[in-house]
Each structure stands twice: as C-alpha cells, then as structure tokens.
C-alpha cells in the first residue's frame, strides 16, 4: 500500500500536486506554497509513525503550516495586494484547448470560502475520503461532506454564470 511506504519521494510524488494546490489557497505565489509544503512535509515525515492516518496528517500539516505562514505575512500581503495585481500563475496543468475552462475553474476556486475550498482540494485532487478529511481538519465526516457538496454547487454556479454571454 502506498501509504505504508518509507520512501519520502513516493509520498511527495503521490500527494505533492494536491499539497501545493492546497497551500495555494493561503498564498499568492507558488514559491510561497512550496515553502509551506516543504516545512509541512518535513514535519510530517518526522512524525508519520506516530499518527493513525499518515495521509490525513500530511494534509493537516500543510494546512497548519499555511495558516502559520498566512498569519505572519498577513500585513505584508495586505500591502502587496493593495499595490500588485493578483498572481497569474496557473494552478492546474492543461492544454491550450482546456486553457479557458482551466482559467475559469481556477478563478471560481479562488472565490470559494477557504473552508469549502480545502475540502474540495483534499477530496477531488488529494483523493482523501471524508473520514480522512475530517481527521485532517479536526471536524466530523458529515461536516466535511456538507462542505464538499456546497463547494461543488457553488463552483458550478460560478462556472455557469461565467459561461453566460
């Protein structure tokens, strides 16, 4: 089973894209998100044997590190956002044919409340179950499932609004 491997690079290959995407919810640039993932991954790797669900713990580490980083940089970000444009770095890989839809989904994802976006990322791109998401976010599985449904519904609404000429 993948979650039982002791090779950290396998863990990073498997979960890295979703972890960076999750960290991007609290950062404005990819470099900051990768800094967060680095710190969280090292913390996870040192403590992985003491936790019940390592995959859920890995995502929880990313969220905690992202929140710590977000609090420390809140003032700096407010100043930067007042003067700079939102970053244009893409969240997803895709072909040119998919570029328009990808951009629309990225934009809609950024508009989601953080509590819904994090559940969506963990479920859709992280491949976690609702109990795992609940463990990572320290909430109930029902709450995680509800947030997931709200997130999908809201995302669809926003995409539908953007598609209307």
């Amino acid at each position: 089973m993948l979650d039982c491997t002791d090779d950290w690079s396998v863990w990073l290959d498997r979960h890295g894209p979703a972890l960076v995407l999750l960290a991007r919810q609290w950062t404005t640039c990819r470099a900051d998100a990768e800094d967060i993932v680095q710190e969280a991954f090292v913390r996870f790797w040192r403590s992985r044997e003491r936790v019940e669900d390592p995959a859920a713990y890995l995502f929880a580490c990313v969220k905690h590190c992202a929140l710590d980083s977000h609090r420390g940089r809140a003032r700096q970000l407010r100043r930067e956002q007042a003067t700079a444009r939102p970053e244009a770095e893409p969240l997803f890989a895709g072909s040119l044919e998919q570029d328009e839809r990808r951009t629309a989904i990225e934009s809609a994802l950024r508009e989601l409340p953080a509590s819904q976006a994090e559940v969506l990322v963990m479920k859709v791109w992280g491949g976690l179950s609702f109990p795992q998401i609940a463990a990572a976010l320290d909430t109930s599985a029902n709450t995680a499932a509800s947030r997931y449904r709200y997130a999908l519904a809201r995302l669809r609404e926003q995409l539908a609004e953007e598609s209307i000429p």
């Binding site: 890295g16 960076v20 997803f92 890989a93 998919q98 990808r102 989904i105 969506l120």
Partner: peptide
Amino acid sequence: LAALRPLPPSRELAERIA
C-alpha cells in the same frame, strides 16, 4: 474537476526536502 491535474511540485522542492 478531477480531470484537471494540479501542477506538480518543482524539482527544487524535492531537492530542498531531500
């Protein structure tokens, strides 16, 4: 949505973690 693949981490991230 799942058909969209998030961008993979950079090679530098893996090197820094290593």
